[in-house]
Design a protein around this nucleic acid. Structure first.
Lengths: 159, 159
DNA sequence: TCGTATATGTAACGTTATAACATTTTGAAC
DNA sequence: GTTCAAAATGTTATAACGTTACATATACGA
């Protein structure tokens, strides 16, 4: 399977998130990367839903219960998680989501539902290829690509 | 020609910008859209270079000489210009650039040089088609697409 | 010229992200 | 196990980006 599909409204998200966390744990261990308490907590919060979440939302959730963590701490955790490929940033909505294809580098594309707020990761080789081809011949060297498509997901369209 | 190429370092930018402003003027007149003084000024500032420019940069330039324009005025002007298709917003860098293909709706793609800061508009039908195709079959309805590719432009790569 | 829609002014505020520097924790070498 | 340097976190302040709410002014057709 190439894409993480949009979750059905009633899917078992607990299992979904737990699996992602376990995989992240394993990956970090293998790499000698330190998945510290803050980082693990931020990652778990990111995985609380399939809707990308803002940094200050994460901050508020971290501090729910009287914590005093500063914004910078969240951004640092997110930077680490992005460097490890565990989290993606969606530039068009200033939000972060868990990566569905950890363990290998990939230039992903994102579908963002403007109704329910959920996002799905595409990772289409054909699209990637078309992009590279479109740029080729212009003498431009690609460093990073951002492809974010907003619209209506299947579930929201149906209702 | 499908794309606005990266300008050569010494190109006649005065003529380039003047042409864009004249075309915008004409388009607004034809549509009955009011290209007021503020909007015209913002558009001309946007066209002062081929590097996308931030809203607060525009603001500073507007106020150079003692003006007191507020941020909101710039954003309102930009909103108008974007609605008319005269300006694009680059979400990945929070900046704005003049549109090179005014007068017809288009889903453009952008190449952004991380060295000189210049950006070019691609508007590749093949890429667009690949994107639509990649999304098709997933039941997702496209509303808006953002494709922003950062890297090195030909001129910067050469030097 | 009247009235309404459009545009702009004004002030305050909300949101997103980073800078700069101090302190603590970690893990490996000795 | 002590020491040391690198990595991580804490603390405070601030930069950068964008909007709300409401008042005023201008344009333009009836």
């Amino acid at each position: 399977m190439v894409s993480r599909a949009f979750p059905t409204p009633g899917h078992d998200h607990g299992a979904c998130a737990a699996q992602a966390l376990a995989a992240a744990e394993k990956l970090c261990q293998a790499r000698g990367a330190r998945l510290t308490a803050v980082r693990r907590k931020v990652l778990s919060l990111v995985w609380q839903s399939h809707a990308p979440v803002g940094a200050y939302d994460l901050l508020a959730r971290l501090n729910k219960g009287g914590g005093k963590i500063a914004p910078i701490a969240v951004y640092r955790a997110l930077d680490f998680l992005m460097a490890q490929g565990l989290v993606h940033r969606l530039a068009s909505i200033n939000a972060y989501m868990g990566c569905a294809h950890i363990g290998h580098d990939h230039a992903a594309q994102f579908l963002i539902c403007k109704d329910c707020g959920c996002a799905a990761e595409l990772e289409s080789p054909a699209l990637r290829k078309a992009l590279v081809k479109a740029v080729a011949g212009r003498g431009f060297t690609i460093d990073r690509e951002i492809v974010e498509i907003s619209g209506l997901c299947p579930h929201c369209k149906a209702s």
